[in-house]
Amino acid sequence: MIALELFIEFALLSFVAFGGATALLPEMHRVVVEHHHWLDDTTFTHLYAIAQAAPGPNVLVVTLIGWEIGGLLGALAATLAMCLPMSVLIYLLIDRWESFAGKRWQKAISIGVAPLAVGLIFSGATLIAQAAQFGWAAWLLVAATVVANLRTKLHPLWFIGVGAALGLLGLV
């Protein structure tokens, strides 16, 4: 049953989701597109785009992937799998957090995980570019977005709007 398979795959991923669901993009692509062939490259990119344009926590890209693969049950299974294991763990650990917060090993993990998360998010960006087979115009838009996002405080929604408009006009 595909919903169950989805649940197991995504629950496994939730244990390494340092940096949230965004950091999982490359691995979700590997599992869903390359390994299981549940989706193709184009659909995967489209789902990422839809999740970008929708309000809510970043984790909802998982919901969309689940929906395209296994309908409503798939969407529920994927979302639950991504949230449930850590939710249970955090429920059990929060009262003891004070006792290990600030310990040397705890700080070491927090510091050590950050450069890995950067690598994951960078990989996610290259992967979207590859999967969408960007031409020069799209790369130009990518570059413009990077510069504008780093230099200004414009709300991300403006970027999404400009991207959607340029895409509608067939310029990307």
Binding site: T22, L25, T45, H46, Y48, A49, I50, Q52, A53, I121, F122, G124, A125, I128, A129, A132, F134, A138, W139, L141, V142, A143, A144, T145, V146, N149, L150, P156, F159, I160, V162, G163, A164, A165, L166, G167, L168, L169, G170, L171, V172
Partner: peptide
């Protein structure tokens, strides 16, 4: 086309992040 445009922007936002 629209989704492609959003994906390009989303990709840029990821690089920036």
């Amino acid at each position: 086309g629209m989704l492609r445009g959003i994906a390009a922007v989303g990709c840029g936002l990821l690089f920036a992040m």
